[in-house]
């Protein structure tokens, strides 16, 4: 069994765009985000419509940034956290390109990158968009409680990122190249607490990372940064411990998008989460640094907690997943 793919033709990320709500825009990577919103309703009537519009804007601007026409995009690969991924499908109806809707909870973005890079690397398609989005208010309604309900957030909980990120993968052009990808495995250690998603996902993240190192023969030192998706402060610590147990020390290289996206000191919570978390960070700050050549080789690994409100109600535990994608400038 092999879970790592090597891309021989090195698909290029020729353009990217990110959009985020007010809270994210004030965070530590706020100045790298292309479109920042003052109002997370984005002029729409409902949070779901706002999320869809954010995704649409991100895809549109990414296409513009890549100097491509809409008609040159072969397919859009996108996902989000809403039921039946409606934010993605509704955004996709504005485009004439093909559309692949995917879902891996918060790991959707790297799943999209893997599929997109494979399509492009195999020369089946020339230009593919990979995108994902999430919205705090729409996710909160779906997974937790109504916004105005006065309940306490436990200290291990995370905050869903309001934002979307999209990038264009192409056969040719200039930009960072996708070199390899390790497909994750669904792992469940029996975490039941739906507020503690960091702990639920860390096991899957550790497994993917370990598999990546073993199959590629690389050491953590080979990367300038190893970026996990949305493990949060607690989940990151668990990841480092689990990987260290297996003989790899990622202390120096590891950062977490969830930890990065907010000024963590502002609250007692663990940081950001959501499908938009890793895509916003990757399509803003990380892309910028890769283009400037300040980062040469990175591993981005979005992590997802595969729960639904039904499975939580029925008392099931939370399986996790993580896909890792290696990008070189």
């Amino acid at each position: 069994m092999k879970r790592t793919i090597y891309f021989k033709n090195k698909p290029v990320i020729i353009g990217a765009s990110s959009i985020a709500g007010p809270k994210e825009s004030e965070g530590s990577i706020g100045k790298f985000i292309e479109t920042t919103l003052n109002d997370d309703m984005y002029g729409e009537e409902t949070f779901e419509k706002a999320e869809s519009k954010m995704l649409f804007t991100a895809i549109k601007k990414a296409t513009d940034n890549a100097h491509k026409k809409e008609t040159e995009i072969d397919t859009i690969i996108s996902g989000d956290l809403l039921n039946q991924i409606i934010a993605s499908t509704f955004a996709a109806r504005n485009f004439s390109s093909g559309y692949l809707g995917i879902y891996n909870a918060c790991a959707t973005f790297t799943e999209g990158l893997t599929i997109g890079a494979t399509l492009v690397d195999g020369c089946y398609m020339n230009n593919v968009v990979c995108a994902s989005s999430s919205h705090f208010s729409s996710a909160e309604r779906q997974y937790r409680y109504p916004l105005e309900l006065g309940c306490v957030r436990p200290p291990q909980s995370q905050w869903t990122v309001t934002g979307a990120g999209a990038c264009i993968i192409s056969t040719e052009g200039s930009g960072p190249k996708i070199t390899a990808s390790t497909v994750g495995r669904v792992i469940d250690y029996g975490v039941i607490d739906a507020n503690n998603m960091g702990a639920a996902m860390a096991g899957a993240a550790a497994d993917t990372l370990y598999t990546h190192f073993v199959e590629t023969g690389l050491e953590p030192d080979a990367y300038d940064l190893i970026i996990s998706g949305d493990l949060g402060t607690l989940g990151s610590r668990i990841l480092k411990d689990l990987v260290w147990e297996k003989g790899f020390d990622i202390e120096k290289q590891h950062v977490d998008c969830g930890e990065l996206i907010y000024n963590i000191c502002e609250s007692e919570y663990q940081g950001g989460s959501g499908a938009g978390c890793s895509s916003v960070v990757f399509c803003s700050y990380i892309m910028e640094r890769l283009r400037e050549n300040k980062l040469k080789k990175i591993l981005i690994m979005s992590t997802g907690a595969l729960l639904s409100s039904v499975s939580t109600q029925q008392g099931d535990s939370i399986p996790g997943i993580a896909h890792a994608v290696s990008v070189e400038s």
Partner: peptide
């Protein structure tokens, strides 16, 4: 087929509990 109960890894859950932030 695995059920959620088969997945319970008590060592891991204990460990998570020990490092989780307290109210």
């Amino acid at each position: 087929m695995k059920t959620s109960n088969d997945c319970v890894n008590n060592n891991y859950l204990e460990y998570v509990k020990s490092i989780s932030p307290k109210t």
